[in-house]
């Protein structure tokens, strides 16, 4: 297990290194400089600014400097807000994104499990049909469409929730709902399929033959066996939430990294885009690592070999 963990962490670092390298050189290919959006400046002023951003040095030196900085969490200075280091910009914005993202994930997965399990237990009844409809709709309706609808109907028309502000928990409800819909649908669908499979397996039959009640069979045998594989889709769900957050945070004016990403893209704020790319892949790598380890812990068949495959 320790060996496996060490190997995985090595790969994580390697991956991040490659991500940083590739983004850095991609950004060097990009047209425009921090001064593109500025008014005319004198040559000496330009030189000064270049020096300030380290753009006067050869590219390989810039790369090494950037790499050294990135290890310490220093991603340079934002083009857009010239007085702000990217790391400060991001650290002040990551909180709301994490909160909404986690809330959406937890809500989506828990409700998804309940709906999916109910569907499987009442296979081929109206409950099952509802499960299918909910999951297919959740997968098919883009989160930004849902966000606008929620904002308008629950926020503006009914006035239950604030529309586009950031403050306490109440402000997170609508964005959480908008972001949680897809994870909810995906996990409901996943759990239903898994559980239908599990319920028709021999060991469930044996559990019934032991004299366990219906709920006993579900609770002691079916649930655990259908939920363990759910861990494998947490990674993809995290990607989904990250992607969705870019638009949803915009719609609800949440000062998160998703909103910042879009803003940076629209203003060609390359250092911030790079910093965000690295942050996003770091978060995703960590999620994938955690889910892999977790899977190994909860599934006895993998625990022994120590390799998730």
């Amino acid at each position: 297990m320790a060996k496996y963990l060490a190997k995985r962490i090595f790969y994580l670092i390697l991956t991040l290194f490659i991500v940083i390298t590739v983004t850095f050189f991609l950004m060097k290919l990009l047209p425009g400089t921090p001064l593109t959006n500025q008014a005319k400046l004198s040559k000496s002023q330009i030189a000064l600014i270049y020096q300030q951003y380290g753009l006067d040095k050869p590219v390989w030196q810039q790369y090494l400097l950037y790499l050294a900085g990135a290890v310490k969490g220093n991603f340079g200075t934002s083009f857009q807000f010239s007085d702000q280091p990217v790391s400060y910009l991001l650290s002040s914005r990551i909180g709301p994104s994490l909160q909404i993202g986690l809330q959406a994930m937890i809500l989506g997965v828990i409700v998804g499990i309940i709906i999916g399990a109910l569907g499987a237990m009442r296979q081929n009844t109206w409950v099952d049909t509802t499960t299918t409809v909910v999951s297919i709709l959740g997968i098919s309706i883009p989160s930004f469409v849902l966000a606008v609808l929620l904002q308008y109907y629950l926020g503006l028309k009914l006035g239950w929730f604030p529309i586009a502000e950031w403050g306490g928990f109440i402000y997170t409800v609508l964005p959480t709902l908008a972001l949680g819909a897809t994870p909810l649908a995906e996990s409901a669908r996943f759990v239903r399929t898994e559980m239908v499979d599990v319920l028709s397996s021999d060991y469930i039959e044996l559990a019934k033959a032991k004299g366990l009640s219906r709920m006993g069979v579900i609770y002691h045998h079916a649930l655990r066996n259908s939920l363990i594989p759910l861990i494998t889709i947490v990674g993809p769900l995290a990607v989904n939430i990250m992607t969705g957050s870019m638009v949803v945070e915009n719609i609800f004016s949440i000062p998160g990294i998703g909103e910042q990403f879009v803003k940076s893209v629209l203003t060609n704020d390359y250092p911030t885009i790079m910093g965000l790319t690295i942050i996003y892949s770091f978060m995703l790598c960590v999620v994938l690592l955690i889910t892999d380890i977790l899977y190994g812990i909860v599934d006895p068949r993998i625990r022994i070999t120590g390799k998730a495959n």
Binding site: S201, D202, Y203, E205, L206, A207, A209, H220, H221, R224, N225, I228, V298, D299, P300, R301
Partner: peptide, 13 residues
Amino acid sequence: IFQDPMTSLDPTM
């Protein structure tokens, strides 16, 4: 007692 011992035990218990 069931036919296939490979599948009739709960793999996670």
